[in-house]
Design a protein around this nucleic acid. Structure first.
Length: 264
DNA sequence: ACATTGACCTGAGAGC
DNA sequence: TGCTCTCAGGTCAATG
C-alpha cells in the first residue's frame, strides 16, 4: 500500500509520537528485511539514543538519531507504524519494536516481509546509493524540468511515473489516479505527450499528492470523484459514468476509464 | 533501453 | 466449512 502520501503520514505520525524520547530498548524480528546491516547493529544504533528529526524521499522514511546516523524504513506493500503503551500487545507481525523511557513503544508492522529496515550515515548518502529520483511532491521540480525528464524517456508514461529513479514516491495506485485526473492513458508514450499534457500531468500530480497527504492517505476520506475509490473492473467512472477497465501495463494492473483517457 | 516475468512474502477473497 | 487458486498498492533480477 504505502506510497508517498502514506509514508508522509507515517513520518508525521513518528514526529508527533516518538521524537526526543530516549530509546530504552529495541527488538527486531525481521530476517531478510535488513539489507547490509545486522539486527544487533540497528539495536545498538538506537538504544540509549533518541530521534531528533525525520525526513522522507519518495517511499523511504528517515529518522535521525542523535549523533548516530539515521534509521531508514521502507514499508513495502503492507507496512505501517503503531505507537502505544508498552503494556499493550504489539500488533501481529510487529517486526521492529522501539521502546521509550515514557513506557510507550513504536512498532513497525509488516505482515508481508516486503519492506526494509536499515541504517545510513545520512539521507543524502542513501539516496545517492539507491539513485532515487527527486521526490514527486517536491515543489522544486519545476515544470520545465518535469517536461525535460519526460521528453527524454522511452516507454509508457505510467512506467515513468512509477520509476523511483526517475521520480520517487508514486506507485501503482497514485500513478493511476494522477493519469486519470490528467485524462491521459497510462500506455501513452512519455515522449509523445504534448506540452499541454505534461503541464497538466504535473499539476494533477501535485494536486493528487497534496490532497492525499491532507487526508492522511485514507481512501475513505478522499473524494468519491477519484478513481481510487472505484478500482474495480466494470465500476462506473465517477466523471462520465462509463465502465472502468483493468489493463496490464508495465506488469501492473492499471485501472483506466477508456472514455476519459483515450488510448494512444 | 524498455517490457515482461517470476521471485520474494503473507493474507484476503473468490470459487468450488 | 474447508480447500485451492488468484491476486494485492513494493522492489529486484533475469530474460527477450
Amino acid at each position: 500500500m504505502p506510497e508517498l502520501p502514506d509514508v508522509e503520514t507515517f513520518r508525521r505520525y513518528l514526529n508527533s509520537t516518538s521524537l526526543h524520547r530516549q530509546i530504552t530498548d529495541t527488538d527486531i524480528h525481521a530476517p531478510r528485511m535488513l539489507k547490509g546491516v545486522s539486527a544487533s547493529k540497528v539495536v545498538r544504533a538506537l538504544k540509549g539514543h533518541e530521534f531528533k528529526s525525520t525526513c522522507r524521499r519518495g517511499k523511504y522514511l528517515f529518522a535521525e538519531l542523535d549523533g548516530n546516523g539515521w534509521l531508514v524504513l521502507h514499508f513495502g506493500m503492507t507496512g505501517y507504524l503503531a505507537y502505544a503503551k508498552g503494556s499493550d500487545d504489539p500488533p501481529e507481525h510487529s517486526r521492529l519494536i522501539i521502546r521509550f523511557e515514557n513506557g510507550y513503544r513504536l512498532a513497525g508492522v509488516w505482515s508481508r516481509r516486503l519492506g526494509r529496515i536499515g541504517l545510513s550515515d545520512s539521507p543524502d548518502a542513501f539516496i545517492e546509493k539507491e539513485e532515487l529520483g527527486p521526490d514527486a511532491y517536491d515543489p522544486e521540480i519545476p515544470s520545465v524540468k518535469f517536461k525535460e525528464m519526460l521528453s527524454n524517456r522511452r516507454g509508457s508514461v505510467k512506467s515513468a511515473l512509477m520509476d523511483q529513479q526517475f521520480m520517487a514516491g508514486v506507485g501503482n495506485i497514485y500513478g493511476d489516479e494522477i493519469l486519470y485526473q490528467a485524462h491521459i492513458h497510462p500506455r501513452t508514450e512519455a515522449r509523445d505527450l504534448s506540452d499541454r499534457d505534461v503541464d497538466n500531468l504535473h499539476r494533477k500530480m501535485r494536486h493528487v499528492l497534496k490532497l492525499a497527504i491532507e487526508r492522511q492517505a485514507d481512501p475513505e476520506r478522499l473524494p468519491d470523484s477519484w478513481l481510487l475509490r472505484h478500482r474495480n473492473e466494470g465500476e462506473k467512472c465517477p466523471a462520465c459514468g462509463g465502465s472502468i477497465k483493468a489493463e496490464k501495463i508495465s506488469g501492473r494492473t492499471a485501472y483506466v476509464c477508456p472514455h476519459c483517457q483515450p488510448a494512444p
